[in-house]
Write a protein that binds this DNA or RNA. Structure first.
Length: 541
DNA sequence: GATTTAACGTAGCTTGGTAT
DNA sequence: ATACCAAGCTACGTTAAATC
């Protein structure tokens, strides 16, 4: 298939007996990686790691991993090929490079420091190789190197040199790259920086057991022990947090509410979704509007829009359109999010789902005290395979209230709008649901994507139900499958929500002054879009 | 086929309670 | 005494399912 192949990665394998090495001749053994280590390498990576030349992140890679724990995924084969050096030359030469940018080396900006980000595929395979052979590397390379698979490396290096010099006083040490920033890192400056960040942020406290505090001797004013290995990360974390608090204090109440509402479990999942099914696909115009809404930017199409169906003026950021119940768009949005939940539930095995049922149908009318409850409708009724039978009501709420006191409340804590709505729903349905012995779950989203806490735990519950059936050999495997399912569910929910929030805003701009009638996104957004909408019957679980 | 009803989600009001 | 806040409740216009 490929005319030219790269040379296999030359690597000293594990120590072999003489007979083995003779039998294999002079040819180096090909490197093979276990599937577990390849999976673990992605699992253990920190989120949000930078992209390389292919533009992929680890989140994208994990999308291609096998969902059932099997070894059949193509992405694993690609990784195996890369590890063996058995990949097309063109591909390898692509990965040899990186994505480059420059940072200022000094304050004047006269010098630059080049930064190269290697590709995620390459980093992944390297990570797996280290998981597989790291201990062997460390043992083999011994005290002569302090980089590969070595924890607290600078500390070890320093102690090693100290011991050598004490033992052989006449010998000398040649230090190359003496001005390397990492080795010259000033621990005292680190601590000062951390404490400065801490004082700027009330929520951050340098706890007594914190590694930065433990290693510091206040009396002598110096470090008696090397700080934690992830010291730099901790300091930048603290700095980022304090910066966030500072920026938060500079913006208005509604912006704070928006920022809170954009955060949270699964609220940003739609941004990293791969458009592989109708559920995860956005028409370009809709995606642009969705991004504008998230960033709080004015939407171009809203500029020329005049008046909402209800008669009030439309604002360029689409705030009114997101909350006005007139025109049917909001109702439609609710129906679509409900549809996403229905699809997820239907994807589970041995699960019965019923839409739009009344309490009367479920037998509430038998209780005379609850006669007025019998016509109440809930969105979904589902019996899960684990025996739970539940009623759910879906709701989407716009958190930026025009009421000043409400806005103030919501700017203080994240998810306050969703929580209010959730309590309201519980108040409305929980008693009747309890009467028929059912568990009521409010499924609430804020329009910017933030789900309510109960919604989060419900999605977790669904994940554990979905992963219950398969027998996994290891705990790590189960965790990995659960993580991927969680990711998938949040993406489906987030994409659906954002798509219809954006469509609602977009279509409101097309309504004429006082124009009424049924909500018709198809005619407004064109044929191509309505065809995309019809893809909703795609299988996705 | 016509009518009724509940749902959609926020605004705006009242009430009762708490902090300054 | 005043300001502030949370909770409870109703109204609003449109839509679609349920019911007559």
């Amino acid at each position: 298939m490929f005319p030219r192949r790269a040379h296999p990665l030359l690597l000293r394998g594990p120590p072999q007996s003489d007979s083995q090495s003779q039998s294999s001749g002079s040819q180096s053994p090909l490197l093979t990686l276990s599937r577990d280590n390849l999976l673990e390498a992605i699992r253990s990576v920190s989120k949000g790691s930078a992209q390389g030349v292919t533009g992929w992140r680890y989140e994208h890679l994990s999308y291609f991993l096998p969902r059932d724990g099997s070894a059949q995924a193509r992405i694993l084969r690609i990784a195996t090929c890369l590890a063996r050096g058995d990949a097309p030359v063109g591909f390898i030469s692509l990965l040899v490079g990186g994505r480059c940018f420059a940072l200022n080396k000094n304050a004047k900006g006269t010098e630059v420091k080049p930064i190269v980000v290697g590709d995620v595929l390459r980093r992944w395979v390297m990570r797996a190789i280290l998981l597989e052979f790291g201990v062997q590397f460390e043992r083999h390379l011994g005290p002569l190197q302090f980089a590969v698979h070595t924890r607290a490396d600078t500390e070890k290096l320093f102690r090693c040199m100290q011991t050598c010099l004490q033992q052989f006083p006449s010998s000398a040490v040649l230090n190359l790259d003496a001005s390397n920033a990492f080795n010259a890192c000033d621990r005292q400056a680190s601590k000062r920086e951390y404490e400065r960040a801490e004082s700027a942020t009330e929520s951050m406290k340098l706890k007594a057991h914190h590694p930065l505090r433990q290693g510091w001797d206040a009396q002598s004013g110096c470090w008696w022990r090397a700080p934690h290995t992830q010291e730099q990360q901790r300091i930048t974390d603290a700095l980022h947090q304090s910066r966030r608090v500072f920026l938060f204090s500079k913006v208005g109440l509604s912006e704070r509410v928006r920022l809170h509402s954009c955060s949270g479990n699964g609220a940003s999942a739609w941004l990293s979704a791969i458009p592989s099914s109708g559920w995860l696909r956005f028409p370009p115009a809709v995606y642009r509007v969705a991004l504008h809404i998230r960033l709080g930017l004015p939407i171009l199409k809203m500029r020329r829009a005049g008046v909402c169906v209800c008669g009030s003026p439309l604002d360029p950021r689409g705030h009114h359109a997101q909350k006005c119940p007139n025109g049917g768009g909001v109702h439609w949005r609710h129906e679509q999010v409900k549809g996403a939940f229905t699809q997820i539930l239907r994807g589970l095995r041995h699960t019965h789902v019923l839409e739009e049922t009344t309490f009367g149908h479920l037998g509430v009318a038998m209780d005379s005290r609850l006669t007025e409850e019998r016509n109440k409708r809930v969105d979904l009724f589902a019996s899960l395979s684990n025996g739970d039978t539940l009623l759910t009501d879906v709701s989407v709420t716009f958190p930026i209230s025009s009421d000043a006191s409400r806005l103030r409340t919501r700017s203080k804590t994240a998810g306050a709008a969703a929580k209010t709505k959730s309590e309201e729903k519980v108040w409305k349905y929980a008693v009747a649901a309890c009467a028929v012995g059912l568990w009521f779950v409010p499924l609430i989203f804020e329009t910017f994507g933030r789900p309510d806490r109960e919604t989060v735990s419900f999605v977790k519950e669904l994940v554990s139900v979905a992963s219950l059936r398969a027998g996994f050999s290891t705990e790590g495997e189960l965790m990995a499958v659960q993580a991927r399912l969680t990711d998938r569910y949040w993406k489906i929910l987030g994409c659906t929500l954002q798509r219809y929030v954006a469509i609602n805003v977009l279509t409101s701009a097309f309504h004429g002054r006082g124009q009424r009638g049924p909500f018709q996104p198809d005619s407004l957004l064109g044929r191509e879009f309505s065809m995309q909408l019809s893809h909703e019957r795609d299988r996705f679980v």
